[in-house]
Design a protein around this nucleic acid. Structure first.
Lengths: 220, 220
DNA sequence: ACATGTTTCAAACGCGCGCTTGAAACATGT
DNA sequence: ACATGTTTCAAGCGCGCGTTTGAAACATGT
C-alpha cells in the first residue's frame, strides 16, 4: 500500500507515519517502512522533521475533537447509557472507518494506554484528563461525589473491554472470527459493550449501597 | 538484578529468560539482556538451546496447572461467582507473587493474547482451548446451549478487564496509583472484578431473555 | 542565462541485534 | 600425566535500524 500520488512529500510522510505508528506503535514502526509507504527517500524524515521522535510528535497533532472524549460524558444531563454508547462507539470507530482521522484516533488511544515516551508534556496534557473525565462521569452515575480507587478500576475495566478488541485484533479474529467482521458486527459489539458497561456501573452502584463494607481504597 | 549464584548456566538462562520474556514479550526481549541477567556469555544460548526461538520454546514448558484455567470453570457444580473469582485471582496472581512460576503464568497469558509466532503447534494446543473453556462456562451460566458470538465477546470483555491491569501496568500506576499497590489492593481488585463479571453475565443473560431481538451473530 | 535557495537522492555511518567461531578453560577417566 | 569430552569465553559476522552526508535535481527571481 502506497499513499503517494497526491500531496507533497511532507504530507505523504505524515499520512504514512500516522497509519504505521497507529498500527504498530512507536517502537515497532520503522522509518524505512514509513518512507517506503510514502514513496520518499530515507533522508526526507531528517529534512522535514529532524528525526523519528519529532516526526511522531508532528503526527501527534490531532484536532481537539479527536483527543477529547464524547460530549455525552461531560454533559450532566446525558444518561448513563448514552454516555457509554458514545464512548464505546468512538473508541471502536477505527475498526470500521478508514482514512487518516481513524488512524489518528487509534494512535491517540494507543498513546494513552501504551505511552511512547517521546511526547512532550505539552502533548501529553491533551489526553491525560480523559481518565478523569471518564471517572467523573462514572462517579456521577454511581452517586459518588469524588472518584476513588474503585471508580478508577471501573474506568480501567471499561477501557479494557474496548481496547482488547482494538489492539488484540489478531487473537480476537483467531478465536472468534466474525466478531468484528464488518461495520454491522462492530455496531453489535458497541451495543453489547454499552449493555455491559451499564451492568458494570449498576454493580458498582449496588456495591456501594450495600452496608458493612469497610471504606478501603481512597485514591493516591 | 542478577539471578546467578545458584544453579548451572542452563538453569540460570531459563530463569532469566522466563522473567524477561514474560515482562517484555518475545520480540522486545534481547538475548544479550537475558545473558547479562543470567551472568552468562552470549554464546551460551546457542550452546544450550540453539537460538532465541528455541530458548523461548524451552521456557514455554509450564506445568499443566499453569496453562489450564482453574477447575471451577469446568466444574458444572461451581457457582458463577466462584468460577469468576478463581479466574480473576489466577490471572492477577503474577501481580503479587514473585519467583519463577508467576513469571511463567504471565508468559502463558501473554502468549495467549499476543502470540509470539515461534511456538510449535504442539505448544499452542495447550492454551488454545482456554477460550473455549471460558465460553462454555459462560454459556452454561447464561443458560445457553452452544457458545455464540455474544458469548465470545463476553469472554473477551472479562479477559480485557483483567489483562489491562497486567500488561498496561505503567498506565495504571500513573493514572491510579495504589490500585495495585500491594497484595491487599490486588485482592480488592479481584473482588471488584468478580462482582463486575457477575454483573456482565447477568446482563448477557437478561439480554437474551428479552424478546424481539433478531438472532444475529452465530459463530464462524 | 545565471545565481540562489529548496527539495530529492544514493551511499554510508554507528549501533544493537541474533548468531557464529575457534580456542581457552575445565572436568573426567584411564 | 595424558587424552577426551564438556563448558565458557572474547571477538566478530551479517543485518536492519535511525541517522548523516554531499551532491544532484529542481524551482525561482532577476
Amino acid at each position: 500500500m502506497v499513499v503517494s500520488e497526491d500531496g507533497n512529500v511532507r504530507d505523504r510522510l505524515l499520512r504514512a507515519a500516522t497509519e504505521i505508528f497507529a498500527h504498530k506503535g512507536y517502537k515497532d514502526a520503522s522509518t524505512r517502512e514509513i518512507c517506503r509507504m510514502a514513496d520518499a527517500n530515507g533522508a526526507a524524515i531528517h529534512y522535514y522533521f529532524g528525526d523519528k521522535a519529532s516526526l511522531y510528535r508532528e503526527v501527534f497533532h490531532p484536532p481537539e475533537r479527536l483527543t477529547r472524549l464524547p460530549s455525552e460524558l461531560t454533559d450532566p444531563k446525558a444518561s448513563l447509557r448514552a454516555g457509554l454508547e458514545a464512548f464505546f462507539r468512538q473508541v471502536l470507530r477505527p475498526l470500521t472507518e478508514s482514512g487518516v482521522s481513524p488512524h489518528l484516533r487509534l494512535l491517540v488511544i494507543r498513546e494513552e494506554v501504551q505511552p511512547s515516551g517521546v511526547l512532550t508534556a505539552r502533548h501529553s496534557e491533551r489526553f491525560r484528563p480523559n481518565h478523569e473525565v471518564l471517572c467523573r462521569f462514572l462517579a456521577r452515575h454511581c452517586s459518588v461525589a469524588e472518584p476513588d480507587l474503585a471508580i478508577d478500576h471501573l474506568a480501567f475495566s471499561l477501557a479494557g473491554m474496548a481496547v482488547i478488541l482494538l489492539f488484540r485484533r489478531e487473537a480476537v479474529d483467531t478465536l472468534a472470527p466474525g466478531l468484528l467482521r464488518d461495520a454491522e458486527a462492530v455496531e453489535d459489539a458497541v451495543q453489547r459493550l454499552t449493555e455491559y458497561g451499564v451492568a458494570l456501573v449498576g454493580s458498582e452502584r449496588r456495591r456501594r449501597q450495600s452496608p458493612g463494607d469497610g471504606k478501603r481504597g481512597t485514591r493516591a
